[in-house]
């Protein structure tokens, strides 16, 4: 696939999305673990939890990441974006590990390799196959 303007934009949005979601989730996880109440079915607890700075920052980053993902979905297939954004799972595990001081087992490195390998395979496929998206180009 030639490196068109559209391909470049897709990858830029992908990087932006991964960064926003990884740090957003980290902030959210930190916030929920440091708030006094238990989250369950009571909606008021969720609304009050938004006042916690960690949760507020996390939610803001995740809302922005949603908009970036919508833009991504306008450029590429859902079945293309899903495996490509899975690199975010690696980021989440690495960031979580830094904060929880966990060991990196050989099994986890294998998981990381599988995810990257899969993403590389998928990156070699046409990013939009339904015709409606490619249209004018």
């Amino acid at each position: 696939m030639p490196l068109s303007n559209k391909t470049t934009r897709t990858y830029l949005l992908l990087v932006l999305f991964l960064a926003l979601r990884a740090f957003g989730n980290l902030s959210l996880a930190w916030g929920t673990k440091h708030m006094p109440e238990i989250l369950a079915a009571d909606p008021l607890v969720y609304i009050r939890s938004m006042l916690h700075p960690g949760i507020a920052v996390g939610v803001a980053m995740l809302i922005l990441s949603l908009l970036v993902r919508l833009a991504l979905l306008s450029l590429a297939d859902l079945s293309f974006i899903l495996p490509m954004t899975a690199i975010g799972y690696v980021l989440a595990a690495l960031l979580g590990r830094v904060f929880l001081h966990e060991d990196v087992s050989p099994q986890r490195w294998l998981a990381v390799a599988l995810i990257f390998g899969g993403a590389v395979l998928v990156s070699g496929t046409p990013q939009a196959t339904t015709g409606k998206v490619e249209g004018s180009k």
Partner: peptide, 24 residues
Amino acid sequence: LLKEKIGARRAAGTLLVLCGVVLL
């Protein structure tokens, strides 16, 4: 439902990613 074309390469890549995430 969305009529996306999922070839062998994309299917293989997706399965690899899935295995990796489960292993993680």
